[in-house]
Amino acid sequence: FGAQPLIGYNYGARNMPRLRGILRFSYLFLSLFALVMTVVLSLSDRLLMRFFIEDATIITLGAGMLRVQLLSLVCVADVMVTTCTFQSAGKAVGAFVLSISRQGVMLAITLFVGSRLAGYQGVIAAQAIADLLTAIVAVVLFVVMLPELRSRKAR
């Protein structure tokens, strides 16, 4: 969200080449950071669980849950950058849709469907699937709501 003023300023100034550069950097940086954190946290999952509990069964279950949640960390990064971009560009509808999707609408749907199709494992996977679906919605909304960013014309 530190890029929000830069995004808003360049969008308002219609400086699309610079805005594309800022967005490219933001998406790339946060996606790479999410990938690194996914690897680091996945490798230390059991150690992290031991900070909170000693029971070996719970540690095993918790480590598995953490790994599933980490699968969608890159999706979360992309959704956050896109939400921030919509907020900065005055695209309230896009920001609103993404805000209610990940932890609301998509999660409710994936919890309902996942629990019925795969029981416990479906519930565990619901957040990761909701994150993936919300990232897809973010891409579609980005393309539809910010067509000016697709044009390569200079300012």
Rank of each mutant, 00 (worst) to 15 (best):
A135S: 09
F86G: 04
V79P: 10
V68G: 01
D131E: 02
A89V: 13
G62S: 09
S88Q: 05
S101K: 08
V93C: 14
I100M: 13
V97R: 03
S115L: 14
Q87Y: 10
A130Q: 07
L66R: 06
C75K: 03
Q87E: 07
A77Q: 08
S115Y: 10
D78M: 14
A63Y: 03
I124W: 08
F112A: 04
M106L: 09
V74K: 07
T85W: 05
T85D: 04
I53E: 01
R102H: 01
V81W: 10
T85Q: 02
Q127N: 14
A63R: 02
T60S: 11
L111Q: 00
V123N: 12
G64V: 03
T134A: 05
G62C: 00
L70P: 03
A63C: 04
D78S: 15
T83N: 12
A56G: 06
I124E: 10
L73V: 08
A77D: 15
T60G: 08
Q69S: 14
R50P: 00
I124L: 09
V93S: 15
I59D: 00
V93W: 14
R50G: 04
G122K: 03
T83L: 10
A77K: 09
T83R: 11
V93H: 14
M80H: 15
R102Y: 04
G64L: 05
V79E: 12
R102M: 11
G90F: 13
I109W: 08
T83H: 12
V123W: 07
A126E: 03
A56L: 10
G114D: 07
I58H: 04
Q103V: 04
G119H: 14
G114Y: 10
F86C: 07
Q69M: 11
L117P: 09
Q69V: 15
G64H: 02
A125C: 12
L111K: 02
T60N: 14
L66S: 05
D55E: 02
Q127V: 12
A92T: 12
A95G: 10
I109M: 10
G104C: 04
F52A: 06
V79A: 15
L70R: 02
M80S: 13
A77L: 05
F112C: 00
L133T: 04
G104K: 02
A108Y: 05
A128W: 06
I53F: 00
A125V: 11
L71W: 02
A77M: 11
V123P: 07
L48N: 12
M106N: 07
T85A: 09
V74H: 09
G104N: 07
R67S: 02
A125P: 04
I58W: 03
V113E: 08
F52G: 09
C75F: 05
